[in-house]
Amino acid sequence: MHPIRRQRLQWVALIVVAASIAAALMAYMLGQNASYFYAPSQIVAGEAPIGVNIRAGGMVVEGSVDRSMDSLEVSFIVTDGLENLQVTYSGILPDLFAEGEAAIAAGKLDSKQILQATQVLAKHDENYMPPEVADTISEAYQRKQQHQPEPQEALQ
C-alpha cells in the first residue's frame, strides 16, 4: 500500500478507536446513573427518593389488580420476587397489561411508599406464537405441574 494511503488508513482506525472509547465511557457512566429505575425491593429498602419522578417495575402479582367501578382508577402490586410495591394509577392500561406479566410504572412515590403512577407500560418478551400454540404450551405446562409431585411421593 502507498505510504500516504497507509497513513490515511491509520487515521481512519484512530478515529474509530477514539470514538469507541468515548462511547464506551459514556455507556459506563449511563449504567452507573441508570438508577432512575428501581426494583420493589430497592424501594422498600428506602433507596428511592420520595416525591421525585422515578420508574419502578416488576411482575404484576396475581389477583392484586383492583379496578374501581366508577372511574379509571386502578391499583395493583408489582413484585421482584423479594418485595412488593403498591401502585395506583388513573388511566387506560395497555393491552398487554395483565396479572403475572411484567409492567413498568412511572410516577412519584408518596410517604406511604405507594407509587402514584402517571404512566403504566407493559413489557413483553421476544417470543411470538399463535394462540393455539400458546394454549397447547400452557396446557402441557399445567399437566406437567400436576404430574410432578407424584414421583417425589413415590420416592418417599
Binding site: I15, A23, G31, A34, L121, E126
Partner: peptide
C-alpha cells in the same frame, strides 16, 4: 459516519445492557 459506527453495536446490545422496555432480539 465513521465516528457514528460505535452507535451500531450499542443499538444492537442496548436491550441486553440496560433496563429497556423494548424486548430482546427475536
Amino acid at each position: 459516519g465513521l465516528v457514528g459506527t460505535v452507535n451500531v453495536p450499542i443499538i444492537y446490545k442496548s436491550v441486553d445492557w440496560w433496563q429497556t422496555l423494548h424486548q430482546p432480539a427475536t
